[in-house]
Simulated assay, not measured.
Amino acid sequence: MKIVVIGGTGLIGSKLVGRLGDHGHNAVAAAPATGVDTLTGEGLKAALRGADVLVDVSNSPSFADDDVMTFFRTSTGNLIDAAQEEGIGHYVALSVVGSSRHPEIGYFRAKAAQEDLIMASGLHYSIVHATQFFEFAVGIADMSTKDGVVRLPGAGVQPMAADDVAAAVGRAAVGKPLGGRLEIAGPDKFGLDEWVRKVLVARNDSRAVVQDSDARYFGAHMHYDTLLPRQGAQFGVISLGDWLAFDAQVRS
């Protein structure tokens, strides 16, 4: 099976291409570095020629509200046009748990727009909603730091390893189109502040992490269950403890 992975050189894409190749599929990494630009359409149709499945795990280089909306609208529009022209049988996209719950968050609003375009395209599709990745904890801490203290709302999270994300997206890619959404999450639930604190402590980062009811997440107030998966979600197998142990080995 030929599977084209848009964003195939990134964090999830590179892992996905490797997994698919290990299972005997012809996995093609499509990204600007390989001559494929979804914003301009350059190289896109050539990459999709003869493909059975298109998987989009790409991301906007800028998270500014206008930039991220422009990226996903333009990129997804070009992908849909090319997929329709090349007769792609299955369009798989990676999105985020909670994308439709907080339209005041620019990134969530852009991902919801991406999903709407795919669902209205007439293509057979599957949309995979993932929770936060373990790999994002430090970035969340950085954007939430003020005067040397990390302030986070009391939201619940069920973060997961990028390897588990890639495995779930891979299963979706080789399976039948869902014609809907699938939520995936990590095996354990934490408070947002608890998760970030564990990662910073493991990395010997001395910043204090406190739960603050006035703190916001990407500019929005969070309810406890806003970022948590709903009933029917599938769960990864890599725990935070296991991931931290592996991360320590890689960083040593």
Rank of each mutant, 00 (worst) to 15 (best):
K176E: 12
V96W: 04
E42V: 06
A47D: 15
A83P: 15
P153V: 00
H25T: 00
D142I: 06
G43R: 07
G139K: 07
F190W: 15
A137M: 09
G139A: 14
A130T: 14
Q249R: 15
G122I: 12
V174T: 02
N78M: 08
K146R: 06
V138N: 06
K146N: 07
S121W: 12
I118L: 12
A30Y: 13
P32V: 05
A245R: 15
T9E: 11
T70W: 02
G154I: 00
K198D: 13
E183H: 00
R197E: 06
W243C: 11
P159I: 01
Q211H: 10
V250E: 12
V57K: 06
A233G: 02
D65N: 11
G139V: 04
V5L: 13
S14W: 09
N26S: 13
D37I: 14
V199N: 05
G122C: 14
V209M: 03
F235C: 01
S239A: 12
G7L: 03
L48F: 00
V96Y: 11
G180K: 09
N204H: 07
E115R: 05
G175N: 10
L228S: 13
S75R: 04
W243F: 15
I80H: 07
D37W: 03
A33W: 06
V196H: 09
V209A: 00
V36N: 07
V149E: 03
Y217H: 04
G175I: 03
L48A: 06
K146E: 10
A167Y: 13
E183R: 02
A161R: 05
N59F: 09
I12C: 09
F72E: 00
V17W: 03
G98W: 00
V199P: 03
E115C: 08
V57M: 02
D188E: 14
Q249A: 15
E183K: 01
R19S: 12
R171E: 10
Q231M: 08
S62C: 04
M119N: 10
V5T: 11
H129I: 11
